[in-house]
Design a protein around this nucleic acid. Structure first.
Lengths: 136, 136
DNA sequence: AATTATAGTTACTTTTAGTAACTTAGAAGC
DNA sequence: GCTTCTAAGTTACTAAAAGTAACTATAATT
């Protein structure tokens, strides 16, 4: 029997999914699965846009983010940034000035996340078909 | 000047994020950015659990999925599966029997997505710290 | 003394998520 | 031949989250 490259990839994928299940099943029950937490609590469209903008521009102030993200309101940006800060994805840097000056940037974890989300984004751009239709 | 491996990785990451911005900026305005669509319309926690379960078990019936995903209601599973079907992530196979028999599985695009989400999941398991605390 | 600027907050409305009970249609048991 | 069972949902309702619009604090500037 000849084991091809494709067979090995198939095996690796299956093994990865199996590993993932074994690792996350007990975490899911206790509500501590980081993947579930990321997707249920932290990964809405506004979070994605904040992470991508900070990944590109590195440091942005509140109103710069608001200007870059079309459609976001001050309240939703505030709520989103607090959530990302709680999850150690975004760092908040306050200057004691008037008018206030607050700079936002990614943490090292946030940078790694941005890198991986961009990877996923590129794959989606190349591979999604049905998603290209405007939906809902 | 010596170009190190780290420099090259840094460069590649920056280039990827730049590419991503250039590609998605016009798509965002028209509401046709697949990444934004995936995250805003299709990527909630229930979608993630459905995709992961189907990635692992390959084929599952409605009540099997419901049994595997703790906490999901019939309505939310129904809504989620319809959304995933609309986005070409999940395939629905109906048998003309009574009581009804419906089998769900991933499309080829859904399988690719599952693979990438598991990759992200493994990275999160290894690298997330703050996410490990129960939040919200 | 009024105006401007930044980074939000507060009160309110609309949309979405979640819950619980109901539906459909034939097959099997009594 | 009447009741019970089953799978895969749906329907009507409530709770929670997202979204909108107007407001606030503080000091420097006009």
């Amino acid at each position: 029997m000849v084991v091809t490259k494709a067979d090995n990839e198939e095996f690796t994928l299956k093994k990865n999914i199996k590993d993932y299940f074994i690792k996350t099943r007990p975490l899911l029950e206790s509500g501590l699965c980081p993947t579930a937490q990321l997707f249920s609590a932290s990964m809405d469209k506004w979070s994605l846009f904040c992470i991508m903008n900070l990944g590109y521009y590195k440091v942005l102030r509140f109103n710069e983010l608001k200007g870059n993200i079309t459609g976001i309101s001050a309240r939703m940006l505030s709520v989103t940034l607090k959530k990302l800060e709680r999850n150690d994805i975004v760092k908040r840097n306050v200057y004691a000035e008037v008018p206030p000056k607050v700079e936002y940037s990614l943490t090292p974890f946030g940078e790694g996340l941005a890198e991986r989300l961009v990877g996923l984004g590129h794959w989606l751009l190349d591979n999604s078909t049905r998603l290209k239709e405007k939906n809902k």
